[in-house]
């Protein structure tokens, strides 16, 4: 197991104040690793968006981050409602976030699009009523 660093985080539901803790921790580790600032920025944005998504839509979930010297893979797994139309959800500005979430300044419909824009690869495995697993890869 020495060829990779595996980090796990639990994202608690409906807790916006704690969202961002996981991305912050990963960010600091990448800085200690000497990863380029632009890669750190991409990871920070993609992961924070993912965390927020899990809080808003999926009652939280679990994040596994695998770091190797070549790449960072973030696996965000939830047992939420699933995404009905992935293609639509990837469109900028499309959002199904409820009003109370929007009133907090979230839910602008930029979550998944940003995650796509800031990563080298994104895979979305989703099933209605079962949950969603988003796997994002950023090459280092």
């Amino acid at each position: 197991m020495n060829d990779r660093i595996v980090l796990t985080y639990h994202v608690s539901p409906e807790d916006f104040t704690r969202a961002g803790e996981a991305s912050s921790d990963v960010k600091n580790k990448l800085k200690q690793m000497g990863v380029s600032p632009s890669a750190v920025r991409k990871v920070a944005i993609a992961m924070y968006e993912g965390e927020i998504n899990m809080v808003i839509h999926a009652n939280g979930g679990d994040i596994t981050v695998e770091i190797t010297p070549e790449k960072i893979v973030m696996i965000l797994k939830d047992v939420g409602p699933g995404i009905a139309d992935v293609e639509k959800a990837m469109q900028e500005g499309y959002s199904t976030a409820p009003d109370h979430v929007r009133s907090l300044g979230f839910g602008a419909g930029m979550g998944l699009p940003n995650m796509k824009n800031y990563t080298d690869d994104i895979q979305i495995d989703t099933k209605l009523g079962v949950g969603t697993t988003v796997t994002m890869t950023i090459n280092l």
């Binding site: 200690q32 690793m33 000497g34 990863v35 010297p69 280092l140």
Partner: peptide, 11 residues
């Protein structure tokens, strides 16, 4: 705050 002198060592 980088741990090593290069990325492999830091990793």
């Amino acid at each position: 705050f980088r741990l090593g002198t290069n990325m492999l060592e830091s990793f």
